[in-house]
Every structure is written in structure tokens, then in C-alpha cells.
């Protein structure tokens, strides 16, 4: 299977690069550790042999599409990555016409860290129920059978919700204590593309300079709010966090609320307006009883 998808991607990449349809392929290549994957930027047809795809290809490459916006490019995207691409199309960050999406029917990716490849699927892949890309110009790989999950994908959120308010505050304070405000979570996030992030603005200075829990909390809460109804669950934030804060829990809580209230999952269709950006007079907000 691995060989198959890699070959398909290489062949397509060669075709569209040499025909001049795109000037850049954003895909995956083997990292210097020899076992994991890293983003690849291929501009010449003779280099397409570097491209790979296997279960170590965890990155959401949509992030790089923003950096290269304006160029005609192709991007290798797993199902969840295509949701991110759709959100970026919806928010006018990338131009659909200039972006050739090589979608991958994704069987899920495994836990990786530098030099190490686990044998277990990442948690987000264990709860994944959509393995086919939502937007694509070409699809690599065979369709993955969609199996019923057998448990609530939001079970981790439910566990946290069951705690008392004090316990939840204690839970997050314990984690935020470790935060060093390196902003890796933000920088890895394909949905964080502001020219100047509010946490770095100085007039007004929304978030103070001290690396103390209140400032850290504010930063994470702002980010969670900014992602509400937009996070597609690629989990790049949590993967990139050097101190292991379970950021996905916060994002999942918002995703669950948006799905419950509006029946909306971001990135499935760029034509559907994001619910938090619009108001329909007949919408039920589930508030006030």
C-alpha cells in the first residue's frame, strides 16, 4: 500500500510539474533520521523521486500553502488536511484555482517523534471517521473503509466535563504552568495565519509580557476562541508543543459545542458559511433554556 500511494503521488507530481501546471509541489520526504517524514518542497521534475507517503506523514501541509500563496502549487493532503485547505479557501487565504490538491485516502498516521516511529495510530486517527479527502484534484490510494467507531469521539472531552469547575481549573493550571509561551502551537497551526498575532501586539497590549499562568491562560483561551468552529483537529498544536500540554482537549471541546449547536464541522464544504460568523434568525443556540 505504501509503495502504491508514493508512486501515485510521484507520477502525478512529475506530470503537473513538467507540464508547467504548477511551479511547486508541497509534499513529504524522508527526514534526516531516516525513519520519519518531513515537509518537502519540490520545484523540479527530476526531484519528485524524493516524495514519499506513508503512515509517518503526520504534518498538515496546509500551513505551508499559506506561505506560498499566490504561486501555482500542488499540495499533498490527507483527508483531515483537506479540511484545513477548505477552511483556508473559505477564509480567502489560498486560491483554489491556483492550488492543485493531491488528496490521499488516508488510513491514519502513527505516533512519531524524531528518530522514532511508533506502531500505534495517533489518537486523532483512532477517532477519525472521514478518511476520504473533501477537496482534491487527484486522489491517491484506495478508498478506506469507513467503520463505525463504537465509542464517542468526544469521550475525552466528556471525561473532562464530568469534573467540577475547581477540578477543571486545577487541571488546566497544572498544564499551563509548564507553558513557556514559545507559540509553537500557534506557528504550527494551519488556521493561525494572522500577520501580527494579538498576543504580540503592543498597542494595545492584550496579553502582558510576564510568563505567568494568567498570561498563559489568556493566550490559550484567545487561541481556542479564535479556532472555535474553525479547528479541523489536525492536532499539529499538541504535536509541536515542547512541554506536552493537551491542547487538543480544548479544541475538541469547542468542536463538540459547534457541532452540537449548529451541526457544523469546519472544512467539509467551503461554500457553507461558518456558523460563528453568521446569524440565522431561526437558529437554535441552545441558550436560555
Amino acid at each position: 500500500m505504501t509503495v502504491n500511494i508514493t508512486e501515485q503521488i510521484q507520477e502525478k507530481a512529475r506530470e503537473i510539474l513538467s507540464s508547467g501546471q504548477v511551479e511547486l509541489i508541497i509534499g513529504y520526504q524522508r527526514a534526516s533520521d531516516g525513519v520519519t517524514a518531513r515537509p518537502a518542497f519540490i520545484r523540479k521534475a527530476e526531484n519528485v523521486a524524493k516524495l514519499i507517503f506513508d503512515q509517518t506523514c503526520t504534518h498538515n501541509l496546509a500551513k505551508y500553502a499559506i506561505e506560498h500563496r499566490g504561486k501555482s502549487m500542488a499540495i499533498v493532503a490527507k483527508a483531515c488536511d483537506t479540511f484545513g485547505i477548505n477552511v483556508l479557501i473559505q477564509e480567502n487565504q489560498i486560491i483554489r484555482e491556483k492550488t492543485y490538491v493531491i488528496g490521499v485516502n488516508c488510513p491514519g498516521v502513527v505516533e512519531v517523534s524524531f528518530g522514532q516511529v511508533g506502531d500505534k495510530l495517533q489518537y486523532r486517527c483512532q477517532i477519525c471517521q472521514e478518511h476520504a479527502p473533501a477537496v482534491y484534484d487527484y486522489v491517491a490510494g484506495d478508498p478506506v473503509e469507513e467503520k463505525p467507531l463504537g465509542f464517542d469521539p468526544y469521550i475525552k472531552v466528556k471525561v473532562l466535563e464530568a469534573l467540577s469547575q475547581e477540578e477543571r481549573i486545577a487541571f488546566w493550571e497544572k498544564h499551563f504552568e509548564r507553558c513557556i509561551r514559545c507559540y509553537a502551537c500557534r506557528n504550527a497551526c494551519p488556521q493561525c495565519y494572522c500577520t501580527e498575532c494579538v498576543v504580540e501586539q503592543i498597542d494595545p497590549d492584550w496579553v502582558g509580557i510576564p510568563i505567568q499562568v494568567p498570561e498563559k491562560q489568556i493566550f490559550h483561551v484567545i487561541r481556542a476562541f479564535h479556532l472555535a468552529g474553525r479547528c479541523i483537529g489536525c492536532n499539529e498544536c499538541e504535536r509541536s508543543c515542547p512541554v506536552g500540554i493537551p491542547l487538543s482537549l480544548m479544541n475538541m471541546k469547542f468542536s463538540q459545542d459547534v457541532e452540537d449547536q449548529f451541526g457544523y464541522k469546519p472544512g467539509r464544504d467551503p461554500e457553507v458559511c461558518a456558523p460563528l460568523a453568521t446569524y440565522q434568525p431561526d437558529e437554535n443556540l441552545g441558550i436560555g433554556g
Binding site: 477564509e91 480567502n92 487565504q93 495565519y193 494572522c194 500577520t195 501580527e196 460568523a277
Partner: peptide, 8 residues
Amino acid sequence: MRCTGCFL
């Protein structure tokens, strides 16, 4: 200078 053109 800051606008990203997301048109929210």
C-alpha cells in the same frame, strides 16, 4: 498592514 483578507 495587518489585514489578512479573511473577510470575517
